[in-house]
Amino acid sequence: MSDTPLRRHHDMGGLPAGRVERADHVLAAWEKEVDALLVLLSRQGIIRVDELRRGIEALPPDAYDRLGYYERWIHSITAALVEKGVLTQAEVADRVATIAAREEAER
């Protein structure tokens, strides 16, 4: 039995970490689209911000650290939409495959 309290990976205030690197980047078109998706889905009451956060917090720690900001977002948005029955995993997988084929053809 351990009495060590549960601390979740995203709850990082006060943990040691490296220097703040003053990095920034111009958002890619797809990142802006993901941002817009959340704004619109949240405005319609389909996804709440706390649901988005819950989905991000559910990522395994290594994925949380590895994924970019909007990568975490789209992961969570998709999971929430599947959970709510707005779309299915199969629909998403099919469409991702179609898009990949389209990109291949355009290359």
Partner: peptide, 14 residues
């Protein structure tokens, strides 16, 4: 000083 599972907006450190 509670540590329940699930989504919480009270930071651990406080």
């Amino acid at each position: 000083a509670a540590y329940p599972p699930g989504h919480i907006r009270t930071p651990f450190y406080v």
